[in-house]
Structures are given as structure tokens and as C-alpha cells.
Amino acid sequence: MIENVFWKKAIMSGIAVSLMLSLTACGTTSQPTATPSAPKVSDYPNKPIAVLQGFKAGGGSDQLAQVTQPYLQKILGKTLVNQYIPGATGAIAWTQLAKQTEPDGYTISITNTPMLMTNYLMNAEIKYSIDELTPIANVVTDPGILVVSKDSPFKTYQDFEAYVKANPGKLTIGNSGTGGDDFFSILQWEKATGLSVKMIPFEGDGPSWQAAAGNKVQASSTNLGVVYSQVKGGNLRALALYSEKRNELLPDVPTLKELGFNMVAGSSRGYSAPKGIPDDVKKKLTDAFVEMAKDPAFIKGLQDSALPIDIKIGDDYGKYLKEQEAVFKGIWDSVKDSIKK
């Protein structure tokens, strides 16, 4: 009796498996018939493109996706489908992109610096690296910004610096979390100025600037796009911007470069594909970003969201990622022993 049931099950599953196999076989056999007619010029994209996001819906990556993707869809002629795979500051999504994704251009991902690199620089458990990716294009770089509460005694960057000089290691400064962009920005700043502050990590940019606004910490190092509306609304005062030149959103805020420190920092968001995608697919994708960057409506959309545009295409983006990786590795190697004690 028992054996009967067993065989029945075995036969049923056998049928099911063979059905599945034949179905997939149909799938694969039908494809080659399409390609021979156009051997070199691919019809990419002929199906929707999945966009992996290493963060939750409604976060910074999603904001970029929603502003960018309508234009990309128009240019590429196919829909882009967002897949949210939050966890381990994006590492789960990026590991999937680097290790488990078919390099056919139908799966790409939003890649955020510095997390894209610091994830594996800081944790041996994270195995991917940027060498396993094909950088497509950077879209936005949100420069770092130093803010204090509206009723802080620091009216200017000079006040702030004078205080830190007089009280080394005393001033409390919030960042978005150990290993985040703001964490590295403060370390870079300490290196550039030779000064030292007391870093307080928070869980994200929000709690960090909120602690500064509520005078729980004396300052916060965060990003322009994050606090722009708070600076404009008068809850925070911006002391310095870590960008190449002043930003038209806050024209009165000096850059660290003007103040005499050669330092540029921030977090950037762009798109990458797995390593080894066909050249023509890569060209289609990079061309789409070049075309999109020319669209005034797209540029206005970014401006309205206080997302500072910073287009770097293909190999330029790859070079930028490499340079950043070296910078972060240098900083992390010099401080990791004191932090991971």
C-alpha cells in the first residue's frame, strides 16, 4: 500500500519534471530562430529590464529610480521593473548582481557610493567587488555638508573650526552610520585639517541631522539633498559644503576648497550591470544615459528633488569608482584598528 503511494508520487513528479524540461526546451529552442536573422545587431532590449535596489522602497535609491526611469524607458522602449532587495547596506542586492545574475543586460542595479565599496572593504563576509561589475553611468552626486542647529553658537565655518582647535576631540558630530559616506567624510576632514572631533554614529541621515537640530549633538555631517529643505526652512544652518564649487541651491554656503582644504566628498548614485555584458548591450545602455542627460525635463526633475546631477558615463564612472575605492581603502586601513577594538 505504502509502496503504491510512493510509486504514484514518483511517477507524478517524473511527469511534472519532464513537462517542465520540455517547456524550458521549447523556450530555448525558439530563441535561436530569432537571432540568426540579426547576428551582430542585437534587438536588446526585447523584454523588461529588472533594476535591483539594495534599499527599501521610498528611500534615496528609489527616489533616483523614480526620477530617472521614466526617461530611460522612453529611450530604451522597454519597461524597467524595480526589485527591492534591502539588507546589509545594499550588499545583498550587489552580491546578487555580481555573483548570480546573467550578464545579459536584463538585470542592472542602482549602485551607491561609498557603500558599494566600503561594504566589502570593511567586512570580509561580503565577497563581491567593483571588479565584478560593469559600471554604466553615474547620475547623481549628493555632496557632503556640515550643518549645525539654528541656535548653535557656530555662525560660520571659522567659528566651528576655532572651537574644534580649542577643544580637540570634544565636539560631537553626528554621521549616518559607521562606514557610511559621512563617516568617511569626517575622517577625511580630520586628516585634511589635522583636527579631531567626537563622531557619533546614527542609523541613517535622518536621525543624524535631527540630533543636530535638537542640539543633541553639536553638528552633523550629512548630505545636501537630505537637509536642503531643513536649511531652507530654518531648522539647520549650513557651514560648509564638500563639493568642487558652490551649489546654486545654497549659494551662500562656502565649499571646503574655498576654505583652503582640498577635499571633495559625498555620496553618489548610478547604475551598474554585472561584469561581462555584451559590448553592444553596454553601448545601448550608456547611450541611453547620454541621451537622457540632454533632456531638459529630466534635469529639471532632478533639480526639483534637490538631487545634484553628476553624469559620468561608462568607463568614466568605472574610473571614478576605482579612485574612490582607493581613497576609502586608505582611510579605512588607517582607522580600522582604533574603531574595531
Partner: peptide
């Protein structure tokens, strides 16, 4: 934010 409305004051 996705609707282009900056959350804030």
C-alpha cells in the same frame, strides 16, 4: 519625495 515634494518644514 518620489512625487517631487521635499519633505521638511
Amino acid at each position: 519625495m518620489v512625487h517631487g515634494i521635499m519633505p521638511g518644514p
